[in-house]
Design a binder for these strands. Structure first.
Length: 466
RNA sequence: GGCGGCAUAGCCAAGUGGUAAGGCACGGGUCUGCAAAACCCUUAUGCACCGGUUCGAAUCCGGUUGCCGCCUCCA
């Protein structure tokens, strides 16, 4: 069975059928770069990175595009406040975005288009919408004529009537209709601006994605992704723009991740209850943050707290400990293990379960459970008197596979200890041989102060960082 | 008002008809010079509440309560 995924368009889990055999074209809405990202912003970066990795693991060739909104009202405002240039701010936070998501194990997109680099396509897109009667100029702005697009509301499953009843839609003076949204904004004096057929200005927020998708991926793509809060109005508006112009379905699958909450409330910049990735990774290993995110299903809301991260850290440590124990054993094994077929069979069974769970709408929560079962099997195998290289390698290989999909790193680079510590460990080994346990315990405590934890195994003394 | 989600052990979290995954924490044990790691055992006769359908329901249907989200910039 292949990959199935929940499609917001139909509110159903559907089998994935690529437009082109073996290929996936995927677009993920990226950030507006005027600040460091908070962990709520990090969630889509992480979960869709995982989706991408999974497709790759299954042998698909993925083209992954994710934009940067590098000019808009918020950046302009931030620029004023900080007394900095708009472009300089954008550049700075694009770099920060790469650093923060990189720390979380997110691979860069194949293409990271920016609004400011897509201006000709955006302008031409708007121009053609006006030609087709879907857009109109009004006082230097250009608006999309929402009611002319018949399928408006198909993604968020809202009817145009109900949307109008919503009391909070503002009526712009320049709009023909309250539901119309802006494609092009006239520049105020002193603002950053571009030339257009409607005078100097800049693009509205939604149009960039429509233009970028078309430019880099085509008129119909496989998957369009983003946070749940983008479904309306952002994605709805993208659909309206793109489908009005291209007269083709914009994306076959729309997928949306759930929020990260704090005290059961959505983490958001406007509520001010956010935690920056930049800050949290000083307190916790970034991998722990990633593991925490992939440990839940991507569509479920997750509550964020230090306690939860501690729990995630303990779980991740369990996996890492087993992994490194397997590696050590592999280096030392005399290759004598019995019951190879039994163990190999079990490893494959757990790997298959992992795949089955990921196939089922990227159920990484269950996939992680399968991984923990593999860890447990590995620990049981490590208790056997003899082990075979072949079986140890299978354990390691399958853990590596799972770690790749989840985006966590199990392989530790061989850290070196300074000579002093090295000497203390040796002294302790000698002390234990001489049954001088008082001294041995003293050394162990001393090293623990330095965050080095010693373990005496049947294969000798091992150390790790705490 | 419209649309949608959630409610499962001390904490987190899977599970959409066949008798409750997994992680963390707690307790007991094995191993160990002692630890650590690991393993074993224990931990929800019950899945917000009330009805109903069914041989059988956490799962389906109806109702109730509570919490959250979108409808406005937001991942």
């Amino acid at each position: 069975m292949g990959i199935q995924l929940y499609n917001t368009l139909n509110r159903k889990i559907e089998p994935f059928k690529p437009i082109e055999e073996g290929k996936v074209k995927m677009y993920v809405c990226g950030p507006t770069v005027y600040n460091y990202i908070h962990i709520g912003n990090a969630r889509p970066a992480v979960v869709f990175d995982m989706v991408r990795r999974y497709f790759q693991y299954k042998g698909y060739e993925v083209t992954y595009v994710s934009n940067f909104t590098d000019v808009d009202d918020k950046i302009i405002k931030a620029a004023e406040e900080m007394g900095e240039d708009v472009m300089a701010i954008a550049e700075r936070f694009i770099q920060a975005y790469h650093e923060d998501t990189g720390a979380l194990g997110v691979k860069k997109a194949d293409i990271h288009p920016r609004v400011t680099d897509t201006m000709p396509e955006i302008i031409s897109f708007i121009d053609r919408l006006t030609e087709k009667g879907y857009a109109y100029e009004s006082g230097g702005d250009v608006y999309f004529r929402t009611k002319k697009f018949d399928n408006y509301g198909k993604l968020s499953h809202q009817s145009v009537e109900d949307l109008q009843l919503g009391s909070r839609i503002e009526v712009g003076e320049k709009k023909e209709d309250p539901l119309d949204f802006v494609l092009w904004k006239k520049a105020k004096p002193g603002e950053i601006k571009w030339e257009s057929p409607w005078g100097e200005g800049r693009p509205g927020w939604h149009i960039e994605c429509s233009a970028m998708v078309k430019k880099y991926l085509g008129e119909t793509i496989d998957i369009h992704a983003g946070g749940q809060d983008l479904a309306f109005p952002h994605h709805e508006n993208e659909i309206a723009q793109s489908e009005a112009l291209n007269e083709k379905q914009m994306a076959n699958y729309w997928i949306h991740n759930g929020y990260i909450n704090i005290n059961n409330e959505k983490m958001s910049k406007s509520l001010g209850n956010f935690i920056l990735v930049h800050d949290i990774i000083k307190q916790f290993d970034p991998e722990v943050v990633r593991f925490f995110i992939v440990n839940a299903h991507y569509r479920s809301p997750i509550n964020f707290s230090d306690e939860q991260l501690e729990s995630a850290k303990a779980g991740l440590d369990r996996i890492k400990t087993t992994y490194s124990n397997l590696q050590h054993r592999l280096e030392e094994t005399a290759d004598l293990g019995e019951n190879r077929d039994k163990w190999q069979g079990q490893i494959e069974e757990l790997h298959n379960r992992f795949i089955k769970e990921m196939d089922d709408d990227f159920n990484s929560a269950n996939a992680v459970a399968a991984m923990f079962d593999l860890v447990k099997a590995g620990n049981l195998y490590l208790r056997e008197k003899h082990s075979s290289k072949e079986v140890l390698q299978s354990f390691i290989k399958r853990l590596d596979d799972m770690a790749f999909v989840l985006g966590i790193q199990l392989k530790q680079e061989k850290a070196l200890l300074d000579e002093e510590v090295e000497a203390l460990i040796q002294e302790r080994i000698d002390a234990r041989k001489n049954r001088n346990f008082a001294r041995a315990d003293e050394i162990r405590d001393e090293l623990k102060e330095k965050n080095i934890i010693l373990e005496d195994t049947p294969q000798g003394t091992r150390w790790k960082r705490g």
